[in-house]
Design a binder for these strands. Structure first.
Length: 955
RNA sequence: GCCGGGUUGAUGGAACAGGUAGACAUAAUGGUCUCAAAAACCAUUGCUCGAAAGGGCGUGCGGGUUCGAAUCCCGCACCCGGCACCA
């Protein structure tokens, strides 16, 4: 190592850096430097600190992986740490902690193959990870580090589940309410039992339970689910890719019907969209959530078919007069009831498909549609098929008889599973109409070059602007109306006739909440002998995860759709069966044997950081209010800054918002949104080298020569990819610690580029940040003696100005999380000091060290202490720029004549108005310009534009 | 197809709010130190014409607004991400 070979004893080099870093990490731990006091409860502290404005800085907590970290993992943790340290130095009480999201698949899969209990694996991984993260010098409050697998933690996950189970959504008040208030409504008769003639009092316990299940926010149901035999469990929609494979493991996913737990997230669809306007999130994430929730506005319209009424959903009620046929999804329940006995007279032979009766044609088509997988259906979007039912629906607007078809381009799962087809103005309907020789009626004013003879059209005419034509009956006319107005008019008309109403439809489905896994939170639910689910009383929580012989949820073939889930907990009969007294005397019960999905803990963990030792409540409301409550600029409240990857856009981030809103409605928390500001850090990428077979080879053994890349002599290709074990391109942080130290790694990761952009790791570039620290050290420390070598003299004018401009820019950059810019500015200042080749003035040295402190805290602490300060730099004040230091900076002076800028001259911005006028008047070109004018006024617009407004003297 | 984000040297990127484009870093080239190497330090480094002084061009492409545009407006191309037979 460099400094050992020469006489310089105190040069900043790798082993010296390590010595300094470990020393300060121990000091911080011993002093509890990063402990943030609560206003009340177990974790109270220094009242002066509590009184400061608070900030809650949060990372998406990690899954404790056993394979160790690579340099990509801590990017976000470094960023929040830098920001948290900056906030502490600018007078805030900062809560920053890191827990572990420790339930989940890898430990369970490891258990299946090795028999090692997942708890053992997971706790071991947590220990390893804590050590690795500690080496980065992260300033976390160690008392608040929670883990989702700790029964003291998941007791409250189960408690929240019970709160959700015991509530329903009141759409009139637009909030969740306790289920007892709904029961009271049924009992008093204020609300009648849906889909039943019988009053509440006449229903048996099982029937009552089924009725309540229609309202509960957590409810068991028999609806179709995503069954993934490969993982041995059912999955939420959000966990299934558009290709119908599992996001994790990429196994096939099938539709199946099993009784499972669901969360009624759809009740919150509107609020989940609306409240996005109150949070400071990246537009792309808001977009993804809006997309996923998928609200569309339109109308439901009734089309009478004989005795039946078919409800269709449309976003274009304005085109109702253009409807020429009606289509039902093949599996639509009303299909069987409307089929005509025989083909009506004059039926187009093309519609019969050669079948003797409509019933035959429909059954044949239904069979064909059922046999085609969803994937096939999507792949054949161009080719539209269907079958005529022989029935006709009446268009409520103009009384036309519209033939009713079934076709698989209409999906049962969206809207009402039935549509009115307007082939003139919908691409799919147009294709179907052409294939089936159906009429196409135009009802919109056409653009240039389009004939009103629809038989000549090659595609549908689709527009959101323009006006409606050919749309009137005796009581309503849409002709000439703008589309938006026509929608309102026809919807109002339909409502007045009782033939329809405005309606919104959502893409969002309820959240499937149970999993057939071992390594998750058990449900706090038992079933009585009738099969009615009961929540366990709070006194029986937590329901601890029992031991089992076999952790495996599956023994089947991933491609076999006909298997059924097996919950590992069901194998422990001693645990499953129990006798309890839930108020009606001792009864036999069976436990729920599914576990919660691994999203459960992460839906609320940030609340537990606030009050981790509370054994009487999830969180003390006063403490929650203190850290999370609504405040100025944050109407919904929430964490001040949340940093994590964008891959959770519609998973964790949506689920957590949902739970937050339920807890808010029930009065358990004061924030309706969990995370006020969200920031997505980019991914650290790395080169992937592949051999001729396309297999990744170890990146650190690849050599570059003559512009080509070789692995053990064989040529390989290079591409950019995610850093990871499977691509053999990981870089361990330990290697960087050993070569340069943690401060250098922190600086490098922050200097690579903007935090939210993915960028490539370049090991050879890391040394650049090490050089910065070396130069800072050399500028301040005598390397022979290790003593600080600064001068007490005042800085010269140029240095002073640069210093204050740097403070200003660094402060702004830090505030906006633009740490790369902050580092560049600090480097620029330090380069200036290096070039001066003179002792650095103390005031400049201290300011430099303070600015560096959030980014490279260890070296900053060391220098701060050598500069003679006893208090840790964490508690020091971040420098404040002297605004007047900007004096003398060059600015432009624009000369306006009659409100138009005619010329610009360069001046210093500390000149007075009079000087400006005389400069303006002394300039030959300006004189020409303003000849015949008089100077009206001088406008000084910060920072660097000064206008001299000149007005024509005469007239 | 729809929606969102983007395009600046060899590379990662900087430029507050329209005001010296390319900060800062890497790489590269030359040099200092060294027996040598590493480390460290110094100098050069957008393209181009020129010996130099100095000039011309330049932020994906084409227009526009402005005294002045990487930045604002219109049109286009390409890249990344999300959604998609969603009525």
């Amino acid at each position: 190592m460099g400094y050992l070979n020469d006489e310089r004893q105190f040069a900043y080099a790798a082993c010296f850096a390590e010595e300094i870093e470990l020393k300060w990490q121990d000091r911080w731990a011993a002093d509890g430097t990063f402990r943030a006091p609560n206003p009340v409860g177990d974790l109270i502290g220094d009242p002066a600190l509590t009184a400061k404005p608070k900030k809650f800085i949060l990372d998406m907590f990690p899954y404790p992986s056993g394979s160790g970290l690579h340099v990509g993992h801590p990017l976000g943790y470094i960023a929040t740490d830098v920001y948290a340290r900056f906030l502490r130095m600018t007078g805030h009480n900062v809560l920053h902690a890191l827990g572990f999201d420790a339930f989940g698949l890898p430990a369970e899969q490891y258990a299946v193959t090795t028999g090692t209990h997942p708890r053992v694996t997971t706790l071991g991984a947590i220990t390893t990870m804590r050590e690795q993260l500690r080496r980065l010098g992260l300033g976390h409050d160690d008392r608040r580090s929670v883990s989702t697998i700790d029964p003291k933690f998941y007791k409250w996950t189960q408690w929240i589940f019970i709160q959700i189970f015991n509530s329903w959504y009141d759409h009139d008040q637009d909030r969740a309410r306790p289920i007892n208030e709904l029961i009271a409504q049924f009992e008093s008769g204020e609300r009648s039992v849906p889909d039943s003639d019988r009053p509440w009092g006449k229903l048996g316990p099982l029937q009552r339970a089924e009725v309540l299940n229609l309202f509960r926010l957590a409810y068991p149901s028999d609806s179709p689910v995503n069954w993934c035999p490969g993982l041995g469990t059912v999955l939420a929609n959000e966990e299934v890719t558009p290709e119908r494979r599992s996001e994790r493991g990429n196994y096939p996913v099938f539709k199946a019907r099993f009784r499972q737990w669901n969360m009624r997230i759809t009740a919150y669809a509107d609020r989940l969209i609306a409240d996005l306007d109150h949070v400071d999130w990246p537009e792309s994430i808001k977009m993804q959530q809006r997309n996923w929730i998928g609200r569309s506005n339109g109308a439901q319209v009734s089309f009478p078919v004989g005795e039946e009424e078919i409800e269709v959903y449309t976003t274009r009620p304005d085109t109702l007069f253009g409807a020429t046929y009606v289509v039902l999804a093949p599996e639509h329940p009303q299909v069987a009831r409307i089929i005509a006995g025989s083909w009506p007279d004059g039926t187009n032979p093309a519609w019969t498909g050669g079948h003797g009766t409509p019933a035959e044609a429909v059954v044949a088509y239904q069979a064909q549609a059922a046999s085609r997988s969803e994937l096939d259906r999507q792949a054949e979007t161009r080719h539209k098929t269907g079958a005529f039912t022989g029935a006709f629906a009446t268009n409520p607007a103009n009384g036309d008889a519209l033939p009713v078809f079934i076709a698989d381009y209409v999906l049962m799962g969206y809207g009402t599973g039935a549509i009115m087809a307007v082939p003139a103005h919908d691409e799919r309907d147009f294709e179907f109409a052409r294939a089936q020789e159906l009429p196409i009626n135009n009802v919109l004013a056409l653009g240039e070059g389009r004939s009103d003879d629809t038989s000549t059209w090659e595609r549908a005419f689709i527009t959101q602007g323009g006006t409606v034509v050919n749309s009137s009956n005796t009581t309503v006319s849409l002709d000439g109306l703008e589309i938006a107005e026509a929608k309102r008019r026809i919807t109002a008309w339909l409502e007045s006739k009782g033939m329809g109403e405005g309606a919104a439809t959502f893409r969002l489905r309820d959240w499937l909440f149970s999993r057939q896994r071992y390594w998750g939170e058990p449900f706090p639910i038992v079933y009585d002998e009738d099969g009615v689910a009961h929540a366990l009383p709070e006194s029986m929580l937590p329901v601890e995860l029992p031991e089992v012989e076999d952790y495996s949820p599956r023994t089947f073939d991933p491609d076999d759709a006909d298997t059924t889930p097996v919950a590992p907990l069901s194998r422990n009969e001693d645990w499953v069966n129990l006798t309890l007294d839930l108020g009606d005397g001792p009864q036999r019960y069976r436990r729920e044997t599914n576990t919660m999905p691994n999203w459960a803990g992460s839906c609320w963990y940030e609340l537990r950081y606030l009050d981790p030792t509370n054994d009487r409540a999830m969180v003390n409301p006063q403490i929650e209010q203190h850290w999370m409550g609504p405040r100025e600029g944050m109407p919904a409240g929430g964490v001040d800054l949340y940093v994590g990857g964008a891959e959770h856009a519609v998973l964790h981030l949506l689920y957590a918002r949902f739970w937050s809103k339920v807890l808010f409605d029930l009065g358990h928390v004061s924030s309706a949104e969990p995370f006020h500001k969200l920031y997505n850090q980019g991914m650290i990428q790395a080169y992937v080298y592949r051999d001729s077979r396309g297999i990744a080879v170890a990146a650190d053994e690849v050599q570059e020569r003559d512009g080509g890349f070789y692995f053990h002599g064989k040529p390989v290709t290079r591409a950019m990819g995610k850093m990871g074990k499977s691509l053999k391109n990981t870089v361990a942080p330990d290697a960087i610690f050993a070569e340069f130290g943690a401060d250098t790694l922190r600086l490098y990761e922050m200097a690579m580029g903007p935090l939210d952009v993915s960028r490539p790791w370049e090991s050879r570039a890391v040394v650049g940040q090490h050089r910065l620290l070396q130069r800072v050290w050399r500028n301040l420390v005598d390397e022979m003696t290790g003593k600080i070598a600064v001068t007490e003299a005042e800085p010269d004018e140029a240095t002073y100005r640069l210093l204050h401009r740097t403070i200003d820019e660094v402060t702004r950059s830090m505030r906006d999380l633009r740490f790369n810019t902050a580092i560049a500015k600090i480097t620029e200042l330090n380069n200036h000091l290096t070039k001066a080749r003179e002792p650095v003035p103390r005031s400049v040295a201290e300011t430099l060290v303070l600015m560096l402190a959030p980014l490279a805290p260890h070296i900053a602490e060391e220098l701060w202490s050598r500069l003679g300060h006893e208090v840790t730099i964490v508690r020091a004040h971040f420098p404040v720029a002297d605004a007047s230091a900007n004096r003398g900076a060059q600015v432009s002076c624009a000369i306006q004549v009659d409100g138009k800028v005619r010329a610009v001259i360069e001046v210093d911005n500390d000149v007075t108005e009079d000087t400006l006028k005389s400069i303006a008047l002394g300039n030959e070109r300006i004189q020409q310009l303003i000849e015949g004018h008089k100077i009206n006024r001088v406008i000084v617009r910060p920072p660097n534009l000064v206008n001299v407004a000149v007005r024509r003297k005469y007239g």
